[in-house]
Each structure stands twice: as structure tokens, then as C-alpha cells.
Computed example of a mutant assay.
Amino acid sequence: MEKTKIEIRTVVAADIEKVWECWTDAKHIVNWNAASRDWHCPKAENDLCSNGKFSYTMAARDGSASFDFGGVYTAVEPQVYIAYILDDGREVSVRFEVEKGNVVITEIFEAENQNTLEMQQAGWQAILDTFKKYVEEQN
């Protein structure tokens, strides 16, 4: 059965080195990996290599909820491409393309079947937008 794929993207006004560092380094991930201000990412571990694992704890700031988000990398091409399989078996790919001094990030993920497609797209896009803001504030 064909899985539904959702695509999101953003353009980050920064060089590829900074974008890559912020996307992949756990010390940065904890600062941007949340969809809204009332959530945060208090813990991130990232072994960025083929067959390497990652795990992020995402939590409500008021302590009312939290969950772990993790998976295994299936492909890593530094500053160009990352692919991984989430712990629930869904596939995700992230492409980084330099255009006119900016970095275009395109993320494609397989939808889950608990939330609407619109909700999933909005949530993942919100995290990507938080990433963009974080990186651009680092410059």
C-alpha cells in the first residue's frame, strides 16, 4: 500500500555550514526542535552516520506531556541530504540546497494515521519555521 507523503520546505538566510551545524548538533537541536513556544526539546542525542541513531525528548513546558521522537539514519551526505526511518517505521528525507547564498530545506515524510494530514503538515512546518528563525538569529 502506498503511504501518503507530506512535503514541507523553507529558505534559510544563512550559509550551508551554519545550517548543517544547527540541524545536526544536539547542542543546537534542543534550542529549535519544537512546534510552539509552549513546547521544548529538553534532551537530544544524535549519532549522525548511516545506521546511527537519534533521540529527542519533546515536552510541554508546563510538564503536562512529553514523548520521545527517534529513529535510525539510512543515508547521510554532509550538507546535502539526510534520510532516516522513525521508530514507528515511517521514512523521512531532508534535502539541503544552496541557492543564491541561502539554503533551501525540503523535508518529505510519510504521514501517520492518527492525526489529519493538515495537522501533521502544520506541525512539521512549525518546527521547520522555528529552525529557520533560530538559525537566522545565530548570524
Results as ranks from 00 to 15, higher is better:
Ala14Cys: 11
Ala34Val: 03
Ile105Cys: 10
Glu110Met: 11
Gln79Gly: 00
Val94Ala: 10
Trp124Leu: 00
Ala13Pro: 00
Val30Gln: 08
Glu136Trp: 04
Glu7Lys: 13
Met119Arg: 00
Gly71Ser: 09
Val19Lys: 00
Met1Glu: 14
Gly63Ser: 12
Ile29Cys: 12
Glu17Trp: 06
Glu99Leu: 14
Thr4Phe: 05
Phe54Gly: 05
Thr106Trp: 01
Ile82Ser: 03
Ser66Gly: 04
Gly52Val: 03
Val104His: 10
Val80Leu: 09
Cys41Met: 05
Ser66Arg: 13
Glu110Trp: 12
Val76Ser: 06
Gly101Arg: 01
Ile108Gln: 10
Val92Trp: 06
Met1Arg: 14
Leu128Glu: 00
Glu112Thr: 09
Ala122Thr: 10
Ala75His: 14
Met1Phe: 14
Thr57Asn: 14
Tyr73Ala: 06
Asp129Lys: 13
Ser55Asp: 04
Val94Gln: 05
Ser50Arg: 11
Tyr81Gly: 00
Val72His: 09
Val11Trp: 03
Gln138Ala: 13
Asp87Phe: 14
Leu86Pro: 02
Ala75Thr: 15
Lys100Arg: 15
Ile108Gly: 06
Lys43Cys: 05
Glu137Asn: 08
Gly63Lys: 08
Arg37His: 03
His28Asn: 09
Ser36Cys: 12
Asp129Ile: 12
Gly63Ile: 12
Lys27Ile: 14
Arg61His: 04
Arg37Lys: 12
Phe131Glu: 04
Phe131His: 07
Glu118Pro: 04
Ile29Tyr: 05
Asp62Ser: 05
Ala26Cys: 10
Ile8Arg: 04
Ala13Cys: 03
